[in-house]
Design a protein around this nucleic acid. Sequence first.
DNA 1: AAAACACATTCGTCAAGGCGTATAAGTAAG
DNA 2: CTTACTTATACGCCTTGACGAATGTGTTTT
Lengths: 129, 129
Amino acid sequence: MFNPELFFKALGDKTRLRLLNLMGEQEICVCYLVEILEQGQPKISRHLAYLRRAGVVEARRDGKWMHYRIVMPPDTGAAQILRQTLAWLQEERSMQADRSRLSKACCSPAKYVALQGAPLPVSVMLESR
Amino acid sequence: MFNPELFFKALGDKTRLRLLNLMGEQEICVCYLVEILEQGQPKISRHLAYLRRAGVVEARRDGKWMHYRIVMPPDTGAAQILRQTLAWLQEERSMQADRSRLSKACCSPAKYVALQGAPLPVSVMLESR
DNA sequence: AAAACACATTCGTCAAGGCGTATAAGTAAG
DNA sequence: CTTACTTATACGCCTTGACGAATGTGTTTT
């Protein structure tokens, strides 16, 4: 029932890989994705839509904000490959840098004025308990 | 040193996935790929070139014939994903059918006249000992 | 109701990629 | 050397997809 071609097409783009890396296993607000990737909001939104059509992510509305999360495909093989891919990405320098900037963005609002008032990523909320 | 984007782009095409499935862990002559996939020789050749550029396969000349084989990427993560992908493909109906037609093609030359005299795939040579 | 905000979508443009047809390149056989 | 054979590449055409800019949609605030 799952389409390998569509699945790999979704992974065949730098920006989409960066988005998936930032989502990790947690849901995250779009505003953070835009700020961290420094890539223009419509561009990010289009790539998120692509990932949604491919069945790789799902969205949840929270007032003005949209939260995206990775959804594991029902197909066991695909899920395994997706998990493996996420682990692989974490080994990459640039992907680590993205994740590092994400943590900092949540703790230094002065540097990321646009994010003041935005809902914190779950990972950061857990850290600050 | 390995490029995830290029890697997944290479896997994001039905024909290329079928080619990789037919190669499996063994090298195979192009003429078989053309016959089994029934897809026109230039098309197959272009997709093989794409896979070569992406570093997923390598070619070996044997007189008039060219043999292609999957080459595991030096990057451990990529290699793991590639192996899992190949295993995943083998679970698909259509991919099993391709592999089944490959065995038959080597044993019934009458049906595949174009293949008479072509070098047998290694897997078939092993079976017929 | 109006304004502000977060995000999605549309539009026009451009590059990448897929395909069939024709042709080139490399090798073996006559 | 010419021919036949296997594979690769060039060409023209078309589709997909990526992008910035502008605009639309849904929600909260005033």
